[in-house]
Design a protein around this nucleic acid. Structure first.
Lengths: 410, 410
DNA sequence: TGTGTTTCGAAACACGATTTACAAATCGAA
DNA sequence: TTCGATTTGTAAATCGTGTTTCGAAACACA
């Protein structure tokens, strides 16, 4: 749209416009012109002209009232200005094996609506897309007041950069044939980015989770599948084929073959493997018949098994603790090479298994300290099963910042 | 020095100044003003004012002569301007276990002088520093016409970011106690950066080697030691403690303990291990007494053993080929997790062992294809044992670009 | 020797930010 | 209530920077 004028006055105007706008956006509440002058280093007439212009375009709102109810100062009361976070929406969608989630958020990243739909790993690609479309329609209901400015979609598998296609998603039938760009063109009039779910989860942890202000972070997404999202220097590491962080496919000594569709390491530590470990432990003769783990494990349904393990471990049941030690040993051995290669400052554990993260933390830390030269800090995901969809929201937000903000002229 | 004025006219002047200067620097030879107008998008008066000012400061030279002897065009002959690559020097120093190298280069990165000094792994830190100082003095002899504007130093071990100290260099006595900043302050009046040798080697391959225009590259430095230099998105991956890429410390199944000071994987594949593999192969009863490998191996000294292996392999000696297959199997198994994590586009093999890289290439490619989901391209280092010191030169050059160029005002 | 083409140099112009001056609005104290 | 202090809002003058415009200069080619 705007021609790429370099070094001219209009370029400076652009710079100053986005400078003022981003300063306003970073502020928690309304800001007076004097504060903007201080923050941006610009003069009063300049700042006023810019906020006027931005106000005319709807990006900024003038709030006549008090700055923010803080201390009153002498002198003529200041008009204050605030970034209009409702000037548009961003959309995050997480298309997973078992569920599809969507979240609509304002331009500050504050969620305004959530939706989810259940699917199964066997759901055909077309139906999965329909579920995603339905979730998007849900969150967009009654939000026609402002346009969607950017959207981002999370999916398992490797997302080929710049191609909007998925590789390596053997668990989802037909998923590698979907053209997401064409799909979204039907109902979304905004840029759409596709990315791997673990990649987006690490972005979420950086934006609003436990990895705030951390540059080199590894997010391990462990549930039925195993994958990692990696940032280096604050930037996402995607790799040539979008397959960076696919540690589930790490080779293991070939005693056992993984089930079709799973990587060797993945099948060795995922939720199924944990259940199998418990069963193997319970089959040992020295485990008493009234072991808490045995009782709890028999009592619940399939969804209660991991919590049963965690509860027994919290009670100090030696059998449960042994299982956790075994699991953490395997996990540590699997991710140690990654930590050696990346030397990150923080390792975040997320995904379904992180629901029992509190009992994993100590044994995993111990196992990592043995295996890794410089072990990173270990944290549990703060965002639960919303990490991925929140990551999509923040990826869309980043797209808004990079692309849309740059096009705003004044 | 210059206050960080944002969005003011002087800021634009800065931008345009560096724009013109970098354009001139990127050009192979003298450039006319018209070409600069085209490249930068600026108008003639602006460009002329800037080159005038830059000329006054010595950064640019006006060459009255022909543009560059190319086709002559009608009209008044143009004055041409060229970046003055001799306005200063950059310095690269590689302090290794067996040798210390230095290289002085002009501001376009073209080497102007080389020097090297032999040391041993047992050389005390003070003597190693003296050798480095002597090498620097060698390359600086007779180069007092222009100042050294940036310098960079390569060392084995993990370099703690922003601390100019080395961790994890067990092979070099006292090396982790050296304060390089204080050392350099004595005779270098310019910024000095310290970095890991493999890290700098990958920079060199990106600048002038086989990795030009590649963003995600892994450089495996294999000789007596094993380390990797990694770039992701064109930027160096250093890690929290500067220990990224230290894959030599990858754990192996504990049949054998590594010698003190070596990592497990390192001791399993390095030059010593290769010699041991050959000896084990020769001890096998089915290897004939007149095997070419046996003859060549017995003939030469310690330095001729790797070439002997390579020569035998080129002749098709089955024993030599078996050794290479074994070596490449071990190596592939060791670096496969790294490639899985990073999914790079290119793997460069360098270091002492790359002298036999031609016979390693095929078996290593084959082994990697078996182990890795998306195997990268495999190339041999084009820079030999100068990769590291050239990398230091280019790191200094990058520092010049980032820091010094930004301070040039006009 | 002329014509066309390109470059050079200076003047006039446009644009944006700053500085300066002054009016407006509120608080606090007499 | 009144007046000064203090901060904000507004308008004009000023300055710095890049662009446009125009004519002169210098060379190639016919």
């Amino acid at each position: 749209m705007t021609k790429p004028v370099v070094g001219s006055m209009t370029a400076m105007r652009h710079l100053n416009t986005t400078l003022v706008l981003t300063t306003l956006r970073a502020a928690p509440g309304p800001v007076r012109v004097s504060a903007l002058m201080r923050e941006t280093g610009l003069s009063r007439p300049t700042v006023e002209a810019l906020v006027d212009s931005l106000g005319g375009q709807g990006w900024v709102e003038a709030s006549e009232g008090r700055p923010q109810s803080g201390r009153r100062s002498p002198g003529r009361p200041a008009r204050t200005y605030a970034f209009n976070a409702r000037a548009g929406w961003v959309l995050g969608v997480d298309v997973g094996a078992h569920k599809v989630s969507a979240c609509r958020a304002d331009l500050r990243g504050r969620p305004a609506a959530w939706a989810r739909r259940a699917v199964t790993p066997a759901t055909p690609a077309a139906d999965r897309l329909s579920a995603a479309r339905a979730a998007v329609d849900d969150v967009m209901a009654g939000a026609a007041d402002a346009p969607v400015l950017a959207a981002s979609l999370a999916t398992p598998g490797a997302v080929v950069p710049h191609r909007q296609r998925v590789l390596l998603a053997p668990a989802l039938p037909g998923w590698d044939e979907v053209d997401f760009g064409a799909w979204a063109a039907g109902f979304l009039d905004c840029p759409l980015d596709i990315d791997n779910d673990a990649n987006l989860a690490v972005l979420a942890e950086q934006a609003v989770g436990v990895a705030r202000d951390r540059a080199d972070v590894v997010f391990v997404l462990l549930g039925e599948r195993l994958g990692a999202g990696i940032t280096t220097g604050g930037r996402l590491l995607r790799g040539q084929d979008g397959a960076a962080g696919e540690i589930g496919y790490t080779r293991l000594p070939p005693h056992v073959r993984p089930p079709a569709g799973y990587g060797p390491l993945e099948a060795h530590v995922n939720a199924h493997a944990i259940v199998a470990m418990v069963e193997a432990e319970l089959a040992r003769p020295e485990v008493p018949a009234d072991s808490p783990l045995r009782r709890r494990f028999a009592a619940g349904g399939p969804g209660d098994r991991l919590p049963a393990l965690a509860a027994s471990a919290r009670d100090g049941d030696p059998a449960a603790l042994r299982v956790l030690r075994t699991l953490c040993g395997r996990l540590a051995q699997g991710i140690a090479p990654m930590l050696l290669v990346l030397n990150p400052e923080l390792l975040v554990l997320g995904g379904g298994v992180s629901s029992i993260g509190d009992v994993l933390r100590a044994p995993l830390s111990a196992a990592l300290a043995e295996q890794v030269l410089f072990p990173p800090e270990l944290e549990l995901s703060a965002l639960g099963d919303r990490a991925v969809v929140l990551g999509a929201v923040h990826a869309a937000l980043a797209r808004f910042e990079d692309t849309i903000l740059a096009e705003i002229t004044a």
